[in-house]
Computed example of a mutant assay.
Amino acid sequence: MEITLGHTPDADDAFMFYGFACGGVGSIRFTIKHVIQDIETLNKRALAHELDVTAVSAHAYAYLKDYVILRGGGSFGLKYGPVVIARKDKGMTLERLQGATIAIPGRMTSANLLLKLALGRFKEKEMSFETIPRAVLAGEVDAGLVIHEAQITYDKGKFAGIMELGQWWDSQTGGLPVPLGINVASTRTMDRGRLKEFSDLFVKSIEYGLDNIDASVDYAMQYSRGQPKETIKKFVLMYVNEITRDMGPEGKKAIEKMFLMARERRILESDVKVDVI
Rank of each mutant, 00 (worst) to 15 (best):
T173G: 01
G181D: 00
S186Q: 01
L176A: 10
T173A: 00
S186E: 00
N183W: 06
L180K: 06
G181E: 00
L176I: 10
I182N: 01
G174I: 06
M190R: 03
G193I: 14
G175C: 09
G193V: 12
S171G: 15
V184D: 05
D170L: 05
T173I: 02
N183T: 12
T189M: 11
G181K: 00
L195S: 07
T187W: 08
P179W: 09
G175R: 04
P179Y: 09
P177C: 02
W168K: 06
V178P: 09
M190F: 13
G174L: 05
N183L: 11
R194H: 12
V178E: 10
S171K: 14
G174H: 07
T187N: 08
D170P: 04
S186V: 00
S171E: 15
W168A: 04
R194D: 13
Q167K: 11
Q167N: 14
G193C: 12
E197C: 04
A185V: 10
M190K: 08
D170R: 09
S186P: 00
V184C: 08
K196H: 13
W168I: 03
P177M: 01
Q167M: 15
K196F: 13
L180P: 07
G181H: 04
I182M: 02
N183C: 07
P179H: 10
L195D: 04
V178G: 05
A185L: 09
Q172A: 13
V184T: 06
S186N: 01
T173L: 01
V184H: 04
G174E: 05
I182Y: 01
D191G: 02
T189I: 08
G174K: 07
L195R: 11
D191T: 01
I182F: 00
P179L: 11
G181A: 03
R194C: 09
G193R: 12
P179E: 11
L176M: 14
L176C: 08
V184S: 07
W168V: 07
L195G: 08
V184P: 07
N183D: 05
V184Q: 06
R194I: 12
S171A: 15
P179S: 13
M190E: 03
G193T: 15
D170N: 14
V178A: 08
V184K: 04
V178K: 05
E197W: 02
T189A: 11
L180M: 14
G174S: 05
A185I: 12
R188H: 13
V178N: 10
N183S: 07
T173M: 01
P179R: 10
Q172S: 11
P177N: 03
R194Y: 10
G175P: 06
R188C: 13
G175H: 06
G181W: 00
D170I: 03
S171P: 08
P179K: 08
R188P: 09
G193E: 15
N183F: 14
